[in-house]
Design a protein around this nucleic acid. Structure first.
Lengths: 241, 241
DNA sequence: CAGTGGTCTAGACCACCGG
DNA sequence: CGGTGGTCTAGACCACTGT
């Protein structure tokens, strides 16, 4: 591989590998060729391949298993990755989800700007309930441009356990990367209070995220409201994925 | 450097470098010897030194400047590193702090257990106000074992702009590493309401952190309450430091 | 310019895993 | 056992910085 455009070789290898993954050459949880083989294919040494894969491991695109191979990481759900720790006792638990609905809406000015769309663009609004050991603890609303994801099937969403990032990847070939998380404490509005079965103005933890594809284009805006009377929220490590 | 105790060479180099930093061989914002020189000193190659330093850069202990050198990272304040973004307009701002007080208290059962101390152990309780462009937005309470940090001087705390991690490092040689953050939305109690000038039960974002030294011993417990009517909280990248 | 970090190689050996 | 990731070297050259 010749050195192009001032980009280090290992960066180019990264890009190639990412492109192959996006193209579906290696499926989820499937082993890549060995570092030596990849080196031969790209015309670089094992060390250079290794450095490239290192970066992708850090970005949580790949995972290594010593003596076995290097694997494509499954697309994880941000909230499913997060921990919820009970205030009494230290155990950290994983949430489950229940699809509430999936409808088309039109972007207001603020939303359109955040997603880089024109005002009034059609969006998918997907809402899900968040449960912890069966107990209702939260609500999340996700918005995606309909132009990018023309068909969202309720059955399919349920099949993937409400993991929209997996859906974007498996059905549309778009790998999303979470941007920075923004947090607030807010009082429950009437709608939230009803859905979450809490009093009006009950404090709720609000999580706002903007996910982008690997080219940096915004693709999914999401807001979650979490009841934290009984549990604390622990952001997943890394912050991005 | 001979290979000891099954530990990879670069891990041993990491430990040596960390020890030197803790011993004060290289001061904050001071350049380390070059990678080649370090390699000569430890009897390893430049590549191995580099891998060791890579890890310490990831852990935010060191910083590199190409063409200049490798420097010891200043000890940062978790909240000072975090961003606060206004809900109107995207600018992210850094907070400032005001020391409220510094007194000795005695650990209750829960606190003692979390800090690995006996019940009733003496603790320093340090409280500070958090301001954003002068506006009061939060309150933080930090607890440290008095046995580990016998003298906490109010003047000194103010001098370091309420950065207790810097104080622990500079005055006691203890480098703290933040553990996972836990978040909740809570209603303001009477005490918090008064200090933060909000209504009783006003929703506040609660941040709980446990910082440990590099041997993993808990050393600082802290709880912060943030007003998020006007701003959102953005956790600093990495989560640890 | 000299000195630093940043990249890259070819080859070696080790540690681990599965058949 | 063979194949994989994990570590390490000696040496080379590039890219950047400060003087």
């Amino acid at each position: 591989m010749a050195k192009l455009s001032q980009l280090p070789l290992y960066r180019q290898v990264m890009r190639e590998v990412l492109a192959e993954i996006q193209a579906g050459t290696w499926r989820e949880d499937e082993a890549l060729p060995s570092e030596i083989d990849l080196g031969a294919r790209f015309g670089v040494s094992q060390g250079t391949v290794r450095k490239a894969l290192d970066e992708l491991v850090v970005e949580d695109v790949l995972q290594r298993r010593q003596g076995v191979g290097t694997f494509v990481t499954g697309v994880r759900d941000y909230l499913a990755e997060a921990g919820f720790s009970s205030l009494t006792g230290d155990g950290s638990m994983a949430p489950s989800f229940e699809l509430l609905g999936c409808v088309k809406i039109h972007a207001g000015e603020a939303l359109a700007e955040m997603l880089g769309l024109r005002r009034g663009a059609t969006l998918w609004q997907v809402r899900r309930l968040i449960r912890l050991q069966g107990r209702l603890i939260g609500l999340e609303e996700m918005l995606l441009p309909e132009a990018q994801f023309p068909v969202l099937d309720v059955r399919r969403i349920r099949e993937l356990k409400c993991n929209l990032r997996a859906l974007c990847w498996l059905d549309f070939g778009v790998r999303l990367k979470d941007g920075d998380l923004r947090l607030r404490a807010v009082g429950a509005s009437a709608a939230e209070a009803k859905l979450l079965q809490v009093e009006l103005n009950e404090p709720l933890l609000q999580l706002v995220r903007l996910a982008r594809d690997f080219e940096g284009r915004p693709q999914m805006w999401s807001v979650a409201w979490i009841r934290t009377e009984q549990v604390a929220f622990e952001p997943p490590p890394g912050g991005t994925g």
